[in-house]
Simulated assay, not measured.
Amino acid sequence: MNVTRFDDAPQYFPSEHFLMRCVRLQGYEAGPAESLWLGVSTIEPGGYTSMSASLVEKHYVVLDGEVWVETNDGERELRRFDSCRLAPGEPRALHNRSSRPAMILLAMPLPRPEPQ
């Protein structure tokens, strides 16, 4: 078992994330993982990400507050315990338009190992 205490979770610094604190709970520098990694982002009021896409799917769960998820199809507000899935290659931007910090859980698959 690998336990990561939230207060000890390693911080990481993704590009194009503004007024946000991102930590990893499992995978990468937070410990071993075979199929996915988990992270939590705290988004301050006015915080956001730029519109961008990743090669793998993303799953978000809002743990606290309100987060607006923008895609090419429009924008949806997610509240506590609401979730969404973004397909591989689907551009997205996150926004916290409220006056309170928001927390969002991120789950993403790990890259597949290269064949040897």
Rank of each mutant, 00 (worst) to 15 (best):
P91F: 04
R97E: 05
S35H: 15
L94G: 12
L36N: 11
L106P: 08
L38M: 13
E90S: 03
P45H: 11
Q11P: 02
V61H: 05
F13S: 09
P45Q: 06
I43E: 06
E114L: 10
A102H: 00
A53R: 04
E16R: 15
P32F: 10
E90L: 06
F81E: 14
V62R: 00
S54T: 13
H59S: 09
Y12I: 15
V67N: 01
V61S: 04
R85M: 12
Q26S: 15
S54R: 12
P88Q: 03
R92P: 05
L19Q: 06
G47N: 03
H59D: 08
A30M: 05
Q11A: 07
S15F: 10
Y12M: 11
S52W: 09
V3K: 11
G89F: 03
M108H: 02
T4K: 07
P91W: 08
P10F: 06
F13I: 02
P10M: 05
R21V: 10
R80H: 05
S99H: 14
S54L: 12
V69D: 01
H59W: 12
F6C: 01
R112N: 08
A53D: 01
D64H: 07
E77K: 15
G89T: 02
G31Q: 09
E66F: 04
P10L: 05
Q116M: 12
E57N: 03
S99P: 07
Q11C: 03
Y12F: 14
E77S: 15
A53N: 00
Q116S: 11
V62A: 00
Y60T: 07
C22H: 12
A30F: 10
F81A: 14
P32I: 11
P10S: 03
L110D: 12
L110F: 07
V67G: 02
N72C: 14
Y12A: 12
T42D: 07
P88K: 00
R100L: 11
L63A: 02
D64C: 05
P101T: 05
G27T: 11
R85H: 13
S98R: 02
R5E: 09
S41P: 04
D8C: 04
R100N: 13
T42K: 06
S35K: 14
E29K: 12
P111E: 03
G89I: 04
P32R: 15
R100H: 15
Y28Q: 11
W37V: 12
P111I: 03
Q26Y: 14
R80E: 13
E44Y: 06
D82L: 00
K58L: 15
P32W: 04
F13A: 07
P45N: 05
C22K: 13
T42C: 05
F81T: 14
H95G: 02
V23T: 14
P91L: 03
F13Y: 08
E44N: 01
F6K: 07
D64Y: 06
I43K: 10
T71E: 01
H17F: 15
D8L: 07
E34M: 09
F81L: 14
D8K: 14
L36M: 13
G39A: 08
M20Y: 10
P115Q: 01
Q11H: 07
N72Q: 12
F13E: 08
L55M: 08
Y48R: 15
I104Y: 07
D64L: 04
V23I: 11
T71P: 04
